[in-house]
């Protein structure tokens, strides 16, 4: 159910923004908008279908957690 709602919202956003964008005739703008909207809708649908979405903090932690631990060891 929620997946449909998400797609509907995506369509609404497109209907809201696209006419102005197309009138602006700037291809870059339209492409970036479309890419972001697709990403947003895709993620939204995935989330509502309870698909595991990789956690960005894990990647950051992988790099920076050792630094943090090192700092802690340094000061404590």
């Amino acid at each position: 159910m929620w997946a449909i709602v998400v797609m509907l919202i995506g369509a609404l956003i497109a209907a809201e923004e696209l006419p102005d964008l197309i009138r602006g005739k700037r291809r870059g703008d339209i492409w970036l908008f479309a890419a972001l909207l697709l990403a947003g809708t895709g993620l939204g649908v995935a989330q509502s279908l309870r698909v595991e979405i990789p956690n960005p903090l894990d990647a950051i932690s992988f790099v920076f957690a050792p630094v943090g631990k090192f700092l802690e060891a340094l000061f404590m």
């Binding site: 998400v6 919202i9 995506g10 956003i13 809201e16 923004e17 102005d20 964008l21 703008d29 970036l32 908008f33 972001l36 909207l37 990403a39 947003g40 809708t41 993620l43 939204g44 995935a46 989330q47 979405i53 960005p56």
Partner: peptide, 15 residues
């Protein structure tokens, strides 16, 4: 124009 799509992404991201 990017604000609404970014908002959608942020919603998922924040969850």
């Amino acid at each position: 124009p990017l604000v609404l799509p970014l908002g959608m992404i942020m919603l998922v991201m924040s969850l």
